[in-house]
């Protein structure tokens, strides 16, 4: 509360709240000044929200550059780049050959196919529920480890050992259970491959 009533008082008036009273003594305050004062209080918290948002956006961009631009390598690329990759951790993508799945030894082993190339996989954790779908595309996180293995495509010198599986389900939706293998598998999946449909237990 400011005492304004005594016209004879001289010197700068003091606001009891501690801050200087900027109200002009002899003329009515300009409307824009008052608008500015009313809004000044809100500025601080809005500025802090904006600062937080900038930090969040920065974090997202860093994640994107690190992760999203090359989310996975396809089986054929991972085999081509095996020497460069060494024992580095990366993600590999391909379709699980249903007839190759074996979980009798406690870990799940299977073969992963993409672009006519096949990789042997030893997966160390529990696969997600949809792993049971025939020919489902999956993304695995892990690394190449040396070890002779017999695959549908022939012998190989390395196994992909993974501890993380993501099911990269397709964009097909069907209530027709009979047709789901064909729905999951692109029509041209075996085109140009040495491996035939019969090699992996498919008719036709």
């Amino acid at each position: 509360m400011t005492s304004n009533g005594d016209g004879g008082e001289l010197g700068g008036r003091q606001d009891l709240d501690g801050g200087p009273d900027l109200t002009p003594r002899t003329e009515a305050p300009h409307a824009d000044d008052i608008r500015r004062q009313l809004r000044a209080g809100q500025r601080k918290w809005v500025a802090s929200i904006v600062a937080v948002l900038i930090v969040v956006v920065g974090f997202i961009v860093v994640q994107f550059l690190r992760d999203a631009t090359l989310f996975f390598r396809n089986v054929d690329e991972a085999i081509d780049q095996r020497d460069d990759l060494g024992d580095r951790r990366f993600r590999i993508q391909g379709r699980v050959i249903p007839t190759s799945v074996d979980s009798s030894s406690g870990v799940v082993t299977f073969e992963l196919m993409h672009n006519c190339e096949v990789a042997g996989v030893r997966h160390l954790t529990d696969p997600p529920e949809l792993f049971d779908n025939p020919w489902t595309p999956v993304v695995l996180e892990g690394r190449w480890e040396p070890g002779a293995i017999d695959l549908v495509s022939g012998e190989d010198t390395h196994v992909f050992v993974s501890d993380r599986m993501l099911i990269k389900h397709t964009n097909e939706y069907t209530s027709d259970f009979e047709a789901r293998v064909e729905a999951n598998l692109p029509a041209d999946f075996f085109d140009g491959c040495d491996i035939t449909r019969a090699d992996v237990g498919l008719a036709g």
Binding site: Q63, T69, F71, P127, P128, L130, L166, K168
Partner: peptide, 20 residues
């Protein structure tokens, strides 16, 4: 379906960027 709530893949990352 995937087995995880979140991955920083391009679709998810750009969507969260749009949100922010």
């Amino acid at each position: 379906t995937w087995g995880v709530y979140w991955q920083w893949d391009a679709r998810l990352t750009t969507t969260v960027l749009m949100f922010v």
